[in-house]
Structure formats: C-alpha cells, structure tokens
C-alpha cells in the first residue's frame, strides 16, 4: 500500500500576512498545514499497522522544506517538493494541474489530503484534484480503512446522527478531518533519521509545464480586495470555580433563549 500525503507548507498560524498585491506572503517561517497533519497521522498509523509506505508531496517555496523535514521526522518514508519561482501566485486550478502532474510521476493506491489550508482556505483542491485525476473522492473521513490487499478503501464520515460508510476501489483520494486524531510529535530519533531520507525536488520542466502556464499572470482567479474582520467587542469572561462558572454560562445562554 502506497500513500501520498499532500502536505502544504503554510505561514505559521497567527503570523499570516498579505503582500501588497494581496497574495499570501510566504517569505516568513512556514509550517505544515494543520489540516494536512491529521491525514499524515492517519497515514503513519497505516504504515505502522499494515506496512504502508508514506510519501509526502508539497508545492511551495524553499521554506517548505521545513514542513517536509517535520513530516519525515514524524515517520514518512520520502518526500517530493515541487519548487519553481514561476509557481508563485498560481490559483486553485493551476495548483490542481501541478499536483496532478506530480502524482502522475508517483505510484500510489491512496492520496490523502486535509480539508483546507490555514492560509488560503479555498478548500477546492481535494475535490478538484480527484475529478482531474478521475479518482473516487471520499471526503470528510473520520476513519480510514484500506482493504488488506489494498484494492479498495472504506471510510467513515460523521453525520448528524452517526456516520456514513463510503467504499471505493483504489486508487482513490481521501480528504479527512481532525477526527482522525491528533498528529504525533516527531521523535528525537526520527529527527535524526530524517536527514538520510530522500527529498526529491521537481521543477516545472520536470513536470512538463511551460512557465507561462502557471503563476499570477496565468491565474484565472484573483483577489480583488481584502479587509480585516471588524474587532469583536464585549466578550464576557467568566472566571470562577467550574461548578459556579457552568451555572453562570447556563444562565447567560438561558436569558438569550439559546438553551
């Protein structure tokens, strides 16, 4: 069983900034996108229980290697980094084309990805990528169970009354949620072992793309304006012993007919 985990490198949460042309500023420190780490954790559990081989795939600037290094230290076997200065400013469609091309050069039964990214937050890539590759799309997985022979995969998706079970033949693309479980910390030994793991860097030429096909100039969507959300005021902070605090919260909600 070979699993490719799409791991985006995003600005450290809380430090996000837009550039003057309203694009995400990726010049600062990047970290692995939190939503993708849940899927990495799910993949690593499968690596432990059924010997799956986990490859990381990212598109991003040089700073994205930090996120890959962490993923390798957590236990992924290898990584692919698609890096090319021309890619900067690409939109969701172009990202999907690039990922599809990169996946075309990899062998896999499953592709895992998080629901969205903490920087752009478009949330279109998982479904669009599945469509582009003609893969079954299993979304919002809370549990992922591949068949022992790897020929199919079954997921659970939570619904308001319980959960749905979805099953599809592989290769397939699975988008999952935080219900899959908290990502592990890299172990110290894992950090040292990551040094000798393979990270392949692919350029646009490696993927057979013309530079003019990607980047801001070729993007079909653009951000026209961005505004800060209005400050939220008037928060009521309750500091008390748990029992007393609960009572106050219940009263607060009850007076507003929220209970």
């Amino acid at each position: 069983m070979r699993i490719v985990v799409l791991l985006k490198a995003v600005p450290v949460v809380g430090t996000e900034r837009l550039t003057s042309d309203l694009r995400t500023d990726r010049s600062g420190t990047l970290e692995a996108n939190g939503a993708d780490e849940y899927l990495l954790e799910a993949a690593l559990k499968l690596a432990e229980t059924s010997g799956a081989e986990v490859t990381l795939l990212t598109i991003g600037p040089a700073g994205a290697t930090e996120a890959l290094r962490k993923g390798l230290a957590m236990g992924a076997a290898s990584a692919v980094h698609v890096a090319d200065d021309q890619i900067s400013g690409s939109d969701g469609t172009q990202t999907v084309e690039l990922l599809a091309a990169a996946l075309g050069r990899l062998e896999y039964e499953l592709v895992f990805c998080g629901a969205d990214s903490s920087d752009g937050g478009g949330g279109v890539v998982p479904a669009a990528l599945a469509v582009r590759l003609g893969l079954p799309y299993l979304s919002y997985a809370s549990q992922i169970e591949p068949a022992p022979d790897g020929s199919s995969v079954r997921i659970r998706r939570l619904n308001p009354t319980g959960y749905d079970v979805l099953e599809a033949p592989t290769p397939a693309l699975v988008m999952g949620t935080q219900v899959l479980g908290e990502p592990r910390y890299p172990s110290l030994r894992g950090i040292m072992q990551a040094r000798s793991k393979q990270v392949q860097t692919w350029t646009l030429a490696d993927l057979g793309f013309e530079p003019s096909a990607v980047g801001a100039a070729a993007a079909r969507t653009a951000v026209v304006s961005a505004e800060r959300p209005p400050e939220r005021g008037g928060a009521t902070v309750i500091r008390d012993e748990p029992d007393a605090a609960v009572q106050q919260i219940v009263e607060f909600l009850a007076t507003r007919r929220l209970l």
Partner: peptide, 14 residues
Amino acid sequence: TDEERLLQETVRDF
C-alpha cells in the same frame, strides 16, 4: 542546524 531547530520546535510544542 536544521535538526536542532526542529528539535527545539518539537520540544517547545510538547
């Protein structure tokens, strides 16, 4: 080093 920074980040996170 890269490994020391990841170590530092990991321990800080933990």
